[in-house]
Design a protein around this nucleic acid. Structure first.
Length: 500
DNA sequence: CTAGGGTTAG
């Protein structure tokens, strides 16, 4: 910022001669730092320029398009349209990107019309941006039409189409497009892998990543982040460790903040608490993301006391928590039975940290109270919430009712849930269990018939584990493994040890 | 100076 101010004064001193050179530097430096205040500063500078060049306009468009205020890009274009220089081929991709982030197809089409008027309607970059625009608003057919009508397509055109399908209904269609690509870049692979991860198709993501390595493509941070997420969900420690050492080889243990976050999460989800802690300790800077991954990891391992200690350490080190941090903190308190602590943190969330709780936080509190058996308090809490309860909240309440055999409240929660999500098979199973445990056999039959009538089924629960480098997948009631009997008897003895 | 990919929660 100091440097920017210095440059600003040099512009004033040197007159308008070199305005473009200096302004390009200053505005670029201000707009590439992801900071809303520097963007504001850049705009203030921009306002002082008597006749900004198209280039300078474009720099502002680019900055706004990928900022939290894409609308500003369109406002500024309006100003350019009235007072400014003519737009060039760089202008419209930025503006279309702004429309994509807004999800505003109508304005995007107006911008496209403008592009035509200035002779850039058939520009590849413009058309690629159009594909992304339609894709971002789930208009896959329109995106396809633009793609089909293009006279010339580059890798980005194909990749954009892959992204459209991957975000849309069919990941298989995305893969078909991907397979038909004349050539693929790292980004093409990353887009497809990210698509698999978003649809929870983690195995396919890892398989494609292996293909990518065979094709001698160098993965970048974005690729690795997606694959780390897949490893975390698969419990694929081997691949996770391999990615970790790959990163170390490349950057000597100084990772990008988001990579560090993803690594911590991966190790926790794969059960390596020690390695997760080591990555965390080794991070040169600990932002809110690293801390939150740390806290949620401690939460998922039931380490409530350490979680609270870590949270307090985070606060005293001057890092500000965000909404996600509190989800980790609250859910950690829930799983360690720390009801009072959890409730106190929920109160402090607004009073001490100025974070407005959202529906997810309310859900955490319902879960916190419910799992501890405070069903009535949970009901009161739901009634007093400033927002309408959603399926997650009724689900948490229903589960608690099943555990504590509260049929009355359970029925209430279930009726709301059935209203919201009639296709949700899991909810019928919980309700069924509630009636069964309460010995209400006539009701059990009624629920079963209701399930048949609605035609919903609960897909059997499944999980997987990696042992000695071999990944095993199993479903509820699975007896196919030769050591099933031994495993069950060992488990039974562990459980009886807990109970005694 | 343009387009394409991305983490932490339940």
């Amino acid at each position: 910022m100091q440097e920017a101010k210095l440059l600003h004064s040099r512009i004033i001193v040197s007159g308008l001669h070199h305005q473009d050179i200096y302004l390009r530097q200053i505005i670029t430096s201000l707009t590439t730092t992801p900071n809303p205040s520097s963007l504001l500063h850049a705009h203030r500078l921009f306002d002082h320029i008597p006749h900004p060049s198209t280039y300078i306009y474009n720099t502002m468009f680019r900055a706004y398009a990928s900022s939290p205020y894409p609308h500003q890009a369109l406002e500024l274009y309006h100003h350019m349209h009235v007072h400014g220089p003519l737009p060039d081929n760089y202008t419209f991709p930025f503006l279309l990107k702004a429309c994509s982030s807004l999800g505003d197809i109508r304005r995007g089409e107006i911008v496209h019309g403008q592009a035509f008027k200035h002779g850039f309607g058939y520009d590849v970059f413009v058309q690629n941006s159009l594909i992304i625009l339609y894709g971002a608003s789930c208009r896959v057919k329109m995106a396809r039409r633009v793609f089909d009508e293009m006279g010339f397509r580059d890798i980005a055109s194909w990749t954009s189409l892959v992204t459209c399908y991957a975000n849309g209904r069919s990941i298989e269609s995305a893969r078909r497009v991907f397979d038909r690509m004349p050539e693929r870049s790292v980004v093409s692979y990353s887009a497809m892998i990210a698509g698999y991860v978003r649809r929870s198709r983690f195995k396919e993501a890892v398989v494609l990543f292996r293909d990518m390595m065979v094709a001698k493509m160098e993965p970048n941070d974005s690729t690795i982040m997606s694959v780390l997420c897949a490893c975390a969900n698969l419990g694929d420690t081997n691949m996770g460790k391999w990615l970790h050492s790959f990163l170390s080889r490349k950057t000597k243990n100084q990772f990008d903040s988001r990579i560090t976050t993803a690594l911590i999460d991966m190790y926790f989800k794969c059960g390596s608490i020690k390695k997760a802690l080591k990555v965390f300790e080794g991070a040169k800077e600990k932002h809110v993301g690293e801390w939150t991954a740390m806290l949620s990891g401690l939460a998922m391992h039931g380490l409530g006391t350490q979680l609270i200690e870590a949270f307090e350490e985070m606060i005293s080190s001057g890092v500000k928590p965000n909404g996600v941090t509190f989800v980790a903190l609250l859910s950690g308190c829930t799983h360690s039975g720390l009801v009072n602590e959890g409730m106190r943190y929920f109160d402090r969330m607004t009073s001490d940290f100025g974070i407005e709780p959202n529906i997810v936080h309310f859900g955490c509190v319902v879960d916190l109270l419910g799992r501890a058996g405070f069903i009535e308090q949970a009901v009161h809490f739901i009634r007093d919430m400033p927002v309408k309860a959603n399926a997650a909240i009724w689900g948490a309440l229903l589960s608690a009712c099943r555990v504590y055999k509260n049929v009355e409240v359970g029925e209430l929660a279930a009726s709301w849930l059935i209203n919201d999500e009639p296709w949700n098979g899991a909810l019928y199973m919980v309700l069924l269990g509630l009636y069964r445990d309460a010995g209400r056999w006539d009701e059990v039959e009624r629920v079963k018939e209701e399930m048949k009538k609605v035609g919903c089924r609960k897909s059997p629960g499944c999980s997987l584990i990696e042992v000695d480098g071999i990944c095993r997948e199993f479903v509820v009631g699975d007896k196919s493994h030769p050591l099933t009997f031994e495993a069950c008897s060992t488990l039974a003895s562990i459980i009886s040890e807990f109970e005694n």
